[in-house]
Write a protein that binds this DNA or RNA. Structure first.
Lengths: 346, 346
DNA sequence: CTGTTAGCGCGTTCAA
DNA sequence: TTGAACGCGCTAACAG
């Protein structure tokens, strides 16, 4: 029966190969199946046997082989997350929100960054397919990845942007946010308001552009196309912004994301222009530096952490009930006025 | 033989179960082993068979089952990374550096955050053990995780901090950096220089403290313990910093990491103090906001991305040659003077 | 160069 | 309540 106590004092310096269910079963004098039931907590095991097994497992530092389990169960506990850029605080925060609710449900998060590149996104999808991830959350670049995933039965939720019809998604009310920003500027007397955006058809950019336009239209102001600067992904924004500053001289700028806001802010400063005296600036998405600079930036704040949490919840729900109709959540941003916007003095 | 062409027009809306090596072998009229050899590129396969196999695999969108492969090979292509806080730009950048060189070597990175909690770090280690990760890179909190990992034969490299003797590591020359910062302050005439650090025995904090002390000693200045504020992890720094500002009034502060620098900066501003007129401030570790605020912060800049790259390289090397003696790389930081430090006016 | 055989570690029948 | 047998998908021996 059970062998001698065997202190087994840690530090098995050699290439101690991992102990398996069979090992602990043998040590506890049961069959592997019983050990499996005891340690995975599914199926009947007598309390006595369970205790014995648990004790042995603990003593030997048993770590279940995730690959074997995944292979058998045909699904892992890893949820894939693919975002545009992990270095951007917006996406980092989004991931933090996701991670938080995922770990409460005992799932592992694995984050990958595409660089807003469809190819890398597709690679990521394949990685998650290979790992048999039951679900993936992404800020979609192209719909290829999502379609591939869904065609293989993995649950997908799109977050921040919405690209695929019939897919779970959680987004921000971009139009409302952009409209609020623009209206704020209009209320301060600005009429030459520039929009700095990304040139894509993503719902984020399209929505923010629409909100900007709507606000102008409501104020019966014509939209001046020269004031609408839409910069393609991966194109250096600085030139375009400089040209705007130099040639068009708006009295106010609405920057549609934190990245563009940063570029604009730096160029404004480099040019020796002052906020808000020479120019007003509003950013979509609040990140820490915007509160630290002087004057602080007026922003459209988004509930970024909540965005992530919500996406994770949606995914979890989908995993439980695959046949539910697709859900789309829309969270509200809100305007936070700081010092970078002021009354237009003429 | 091979069945009818089968267009297979995507959108297999059902729960299309993943296709396996057996599927593509059957379709190509070979045995699974040949298919394996062809697709994994190890072992002899006739060009003809290979082409056929590759074509079928491509057509069917074959994605190898990572779990099965890992189970068989007893090792995965996933390298674990565990850092203190993914939200901190320092760690984010570190991870970016790691990811970069890892992917060049065709490894996947999986990042986990402990919150400078030994427990969470240990959980992370178990996760990677479960996944059969061949190696792990970490900013160590306690040596338990590393020891567990190494006892199971997984390669470990410590980065930023060094905790375990005989372990590969890549660090910054903390002492030199701190000394440069303090000397800079001394050269400006400051004598009441406070140190804001973390209260641990980690090499980062110990090194920075030592550098600070060494500079004072070299200037034949006594170290005033009331000016040395060491804040334990997870303790709110604000109170301690406020007390320092209120009760001790140093003329200069050396903040030993970006986090503490941010807290200090905010409190200084809230108190209505001006940099560098009322107080000089130097930070260890440069992050973007430090250049954006006015005045910009004088910092000890570290090659963070390179730190990550270097750690990954070390790991890769260890994986190739497990028997090499442990290597410890030490990178040099350097002082970058901006506007937050100035001559002491009395 | 190819196919057959066997087994990685685990979970899940099914009988006992 | 337990154990024996099987198979998840892939790869490594070994024959052929």
């Amino acid at each position: 029966m059970s062998a001698s106590p065997q202190p087994h004092e840690t530090h098995e310096l050699g290439l101690a190969q991992p102990i398996t269910l069979a090992d602990i079963a043998r040590e506890a004098g049961t069959s592997p199946s019983t050990a499996s039931r005891a340690l995975s907590g599914r199926g009947y095991v007598s309390p006595a046997a369970r205790d014995r097994l648990l004790a042995v497992a603990d003593r030997l530092g048993y770590v279940p082989n995730a690959s074997a389990r995944t292979l058998k169960r045909r699904s892992s506990r890893v949820i894939g997350v693919v975002v545009s850029d992990l270095g951007n605080q917006f996406y980092a925060r989004l991931a933090a929100g996701i991670e938080q609710t995922l770990r409460e449900a005992d799932y592992q998060m694995m984050v990958l960054g595409d660089n807003s590149e469809g190819d890398e996104e597709l690679d990521g999808a394949r990685t998650f397919l290979a790992m048999r991830a039951p679900g993936v959350i992404m800020t979609p670049v192209s719909s290829d990845a999502g379609e591939l995933l869904r065609s293989q039965g993995v649950a997908v939720v799109e977050v921040d942007r919405r690209l695929t019809e019939g897919c779970d998604a959680v987004v921000i009310d971009n139009e409302a946010g952009a409209r609020a920003a623009t209206e704020h500027l209009l209320s301060l007397g600005h009429t030459r308001i520039a929009l700095l955006g990304v040139d894509t058809e993503w719902t984020t950019d399209a929505g923010r552009l629409a909100g900007y336009r709507a606000a102008l239209a409501a104020a019966r102001l014509p939209a001046d196309d020269r004031l609408i600067v839409r910069i393609p992904v991966h194109v250096d924004a600085d030139e375009r912004i400089e040209a705007l500053l130099r040639d068009e001289r708006p009295t106010a700028i609405f920057a549609a994301n934190n990245q563009l806001a940063e570029r604009a802010w730096r160029l404004i400063r480099r040019r020796g222009l002052h906020l808000p005296g020479d120019l007003s600036l509003v950013a979509f998405d609040d990140v820490p530096w915007m509160q630290m600079v002087d004057p602080g930036l007026t922003v459209v704040e988004q509930p970024t952490l909540e965005l992530g949490r919500c996406a994770a919840k949606l995914l979890l729900q989908r995993l439980e009930s695959p046949s539910l109709p697709p859900a789309v959540e829309c969270l509200q941003p809100h305007l936070l006025v700081r010092g970078s916007t002021a009354m237009l003095v003429r």
